[in-house]
Amino acid sequence: MQHLSQKCLGVCWTFARLRAVRQLSSKVPPKPTWEKVDFDALPKVPEVDLALVEQLERISLVEFNNETGLEWLRSSVKSANRLHVVDTEGVEPLDNVLEDRELWLCEDQVTEGNCTEQVLLNALKTEEQYFVAPPGNVPLKKRDKQHLKLGLQEDEDSS
């Protein structure tokens, strides 16, 4: 460990050397330059109610764990609202930074295949050469949302 502290000494030295040469008016701003965001001037965060929760869970196929999850969604939307401070009128959306380039496309030819076994290797349930899935086209059962009760807006108790 001893050599480490010796090294540290060496570094303080380097640092001191760097500090010593400061004599120019640095181009680095001495104070933070960020402007304060006035959230009151931004659009309102939409209410997170039972209908929205059920919709998001249905399309996401994951559930909100608890009220903290709902709170997080709200703060996430609040934060996203900041984008509205800037005027983007006439600005095209940017999908990909390579938009100006011609990208490579492969020929429409089969280059690989005959790898059924490999492809099935990571599936937990297979039959013959098929993946096995439970019956489809059955809507997700309604979940009890009791655990989110306190976090939901415009709930039964208020009606």
């Binding site: 994951v62 559930e63 439970p134 019956p135 059955v138």
Partner: peptide, 30 residues
């Protein structure tokens, strides 16, 4: 649950992802 594909997806994804991943998926879909 192997009752239906949707139930199985939901259960596996709920078990498989941590809170961070789940909340980003939910916010993304919002």
């Amino acid at each position: 649950s192997e009752e239906s594909t949707e139930e199985l997806y939901a259960a596996s994804r709920h078990q498989g992802f941590n809170d961070v991943v789940r909340s980003r998926i939910l916010a993304g879909n919002f």
